[in-house]
Each structure stands twice: as C-alpha cells, then as structure tokens.
C-alpha cells in the first residue's frame, strides 16, 4: 500500500526534478504510454490503463496540459490505496469496468483502445446518464461558496452537503471517480498555473478588480 508520506515524497521528488529543469512526464501521445508503465500501482495494469484513458478523456490536453500530462492518474491510483476503503475501491473499479464495457458494446475493443474521438463520444453520453439528475449546489450550513466541499469528498455527517449528492445520482461511483480525476488535475501545479489562478500567499486583499477576457477563476482549497 502506498502511504500518504510515500506519495508526498514522490511528489516532492517530482517538484525537485522540475525545479532542476528535468521534464518529469513526457507530453503528447507518449504520455499515455509512459503513464501506464512502471511503478507500484493499486490498480492492476488493465484497470490502470483504463483509468489513464478515462482521465485523458475527461480532461484532455488542449492549449493546456491534460490530466495525464500532470500525472492525475498516478495521484488517483495512489488515492485509491491511501484514501479509499476496500469497499470504495471495489466500487470505483466497477465504475471503470462499466466504462470499459461501453467500448466493447460499441463494437470496438476496450475503452482504452478506442480513438480519442470515440472515447469522448461514449464517455460524454455515459457521463450525462451517470450524473442524472445533475448535482445541485450543496446544502451545508458551513458551506463555503468557492469550494463547498473544502477539498473533501462526502465523508461528513448527514447534515452536510455534498457537491455530488451520491444517492441522488444514477451512478455515484462514476461521479466519485470523475471527482477524483478532476480534483487531481485542478490541484496540480500545472492546472493552478495555466488553467486557474492560484497564489499560495496572495498578500493583499483587493475587494474589487476588473474582469477581463483573460480572467481565470481562483483555484486551490478554499475554506471561505
């Protein structure tokens, strides 16, 4: 099992390498293959390859890096070991299997073997069905608007809201899987640099600044 400390150490190593100018993860098409290779994984190779393909489809490389380029599959895989209970792990793996079945049912091979366009087509439909009815804004007394879950999943009391209200969704396990991937991406240094705006220590509070076409939403783990 990979512990949080191990994950920290690995991340720290990546950042040190990055500081030294070493490219940690290859970009583009190589990334998929490279991300699947090597390392101690929670998921078996087939499931991990599937996770990589799903992550790449949910957050693809565009003008900015995608989930695979920033290492989101590795983070999610580690989280499956260090955060998820055995029951949760089984649910999430089953959610992956359901996505794989989409590929097979479409007449192609497994999901990971499909073209990006085909993967998008199948997963977009699956996503819409799985998240039906759409999640609502959480109901939580302490809720905080910018980040109502405060970086957490639905592990609080029944009083607490949850962004994706598991029980109300057609496929709560898929919703959780998607959330793990999306959060892994948006917590990444790359996404917080290029997709969102994040300063660890903003310094000054400016209560009103103009919005321009380049204005990006603030990222990070907000409490208020």
């Amino acid at each position: 099992m990979m512990h949080a400390m191990d994950m920290n150490r690995r991340m720290l190593m990546q950042h040190l390498l990055a500081l030294a100018g070493v490219s940690v993860l290859p970009g583009g098409a190589e990334a998929l293959a490279a991300a699947v290779e090597g390392g101690t994984r929670q998921l078996n190779p087939a499931h991990y390859a599937l996770l990589v393909a799903v992550a790449d489809t949910i957050i693809p490389k565009t003008d900015t890096s995608g989930a695979v380029e920033v290492g989101a599959p590795q983070v999610v895989d580690a989280v499956l070991g260090s955060w998820a209970s055995p029951a949760r792990r089984a649910e999430l793996t089953a959610a992956l299997d359901r996505i794989d079945a989409l590929g097979k049912a479409s007449g192609g091979g497994g999901f990971a073997s499909l073209s990006p366009a085909k993967r998008f087509e199948l997963l977009a439909a699956h996503d819409a069905a799985a998240l039906n009815p759409p999640a609502v804004v959480p109901v939580d007394s302490t809720t905080v608007l910018a980040d109502p879950q405060q970086g957490k999943a639905e592990q609080k009391s029944s009083q607490s809201g949850s962004l994706i209200q598991g029980a109300q969704l057609a496929d709560p396990a898929y919703a959780k899987l998607k959330e793990l991937i999306v959060v892994a991406f948006y917590f990444s240094e790359s996404a917080l640099t290029h997709d969102l705006r994040y300063e660890h220590s903003p310094g000054e509070w400016k209560p009103s600044i103009p919005v321009t076409p380049d204005t990006r939403a603030e990222g990070g783990v907000a409490l208020l």
Binding site: M5, N8, G151, K152, L180, A184, F187, Y198, V221
Partner: peptide, 9 residues
C-alpha cells in the same frame, strides 16, 4: 494544493 495527501480527504 498538490502537496496535500489524498486530495485533502
């Protein structure tokens, strides 16, 4: 954010 274990869960 990227240094927080378990996506802060």
């Amino acid at each position: 954010p990227w240094e927080i274990p378990n996506e802060n869960m």
